[in-house]
Every structure is written in C-alpha cells, then in structure tokens.
C-alpha cells in the first residue's frame, strides 16, 4: 500500500521551517552593523591638536555645527604650512570663506561655526578667518577645545 504510507508521513511532518532562530539572526546582523559602522567624518588634511580649556560648553545639536579647521598641512608639497580647511577642501584664499559660510548660513540660520584650530597656530590666520566670518554674518562660533587634564 504505497499511497497510505505516503499519506501517513506527510501528516506527521510539519510544513514550514522553524522561526525561532530568526531573532538571533536579526540580532547578529544588528550587532555586525553596529560594530562595523563608522560615523562619517571628514578626512582632515590639516593637523589640529586642540587646545585645552576649563570653561567648556557642550554643543548638543550636532546639525547646527559647521567646522573650520586651521592647522599645518599633514602631507604633500606644502606640508607644515598652516592652512584652512572647510568640509573636505583646503581653502586657498581666505576671502573665499565668506561665500562658503554665507551659503551655509542660508541653509541653517542658527549655524554655529566650530573653530578647530591647532594649538600652535598663529593668531594672524585665526583673526583673518574671524573677519571673514563676520563678513558672512556667521557670528556664533565655538573655539573647540578639550577638557583640561591634570597638569
């Protein structure tokens, strides 16, 4: 009786696959992505070792921040020369800053410019950049610095 034998078997086997391990798979994927994801950061062409200070304030709203990096160029022909970097590009001429910043201010009226300046940079270039920021109207700035360690 081949047909009855077949029927009996199919009745005993449950169709479908077990879903008990699906949460584990999802977790594994979640953890894999958590571990492998690196938050996007602009690759710096200038070296900025931030100064340390005591009277620090935190900027909670990250989307308001636009960074201006000032420091010696890391590599290439002009290595060691102090330069200004905004986003991903080095700024050749400081007078270009006012247009860049003005554009950013139109997009985000509450813009905070985070000045990430190398500790050994001279005030001359910092002042130049600040004058440009005034021209652009981006008046809220933040001198990015680290917490003062024990000295």
């Amino acid at each position: 009786m081949p047909s009855s034998h077949f029927q009996k078997r199919s009745a005993n086997t449950e169709p479908g696959f077990t879903t008990a391990s699906l949460p584990d798979i999802v977790f594994m994927l979640l953890i894999f992505f958590m571990v492998s994801t690196v938050l996007r950061e602009t690759d710096l062409k200038v070296q900025t070792q931030l100064p340390s200070a005591e009277a620090l304030t935190k900027i909670d709203q990250k989307r308001l921040i636009s960074a201006v990096h000032i420091g010696p160029i890391k590599q290439g022909e002009k290595k060691g020369q102090t330069a200004v970097q905004i986003d991903d590009a080095l700024i050749e001429n400081t007078s270009a800053i006012r247009n860049i910043m003005y554009g950013k201010l139109q997009e985000q009226p509450k813009l905070i410019v985070s000045m990430k300046v190398d500790r050994e940079s001279q005030m001359k270039i910092v002042n130049e950049v600040q004058q440009e920021l005034r021209e652009a109207g981006t008046l809220r700035i933040n001198y990015s610095s680290t917490r003062e360690g024990p000295r």
Partner: peptide, 25 residues
C-alpha cells in the same frame, strides 16, 4: 545577543563637541 547589544550600547560614546562659545561682533 542582548547582553552584547547592551554592552555596546553602554560603551559607545558619541563624542560631543566641547569648546568655548563666543559671539563675534
């Protein structure tokens, strides 16, 4: 998996920007 998840949640710090706030004239 939960323990690992919680471990990573706790140990991950998103670095907050700190600095001296100023308003230019």
């Amino acid at each position: 998996a939960f323990l690992l998840l919680i471990f990573f949640l706790v140990t991950t710090t998103i670095n907050v920007d700190t600095g001296i706030g100023m308003t230019l004239p």
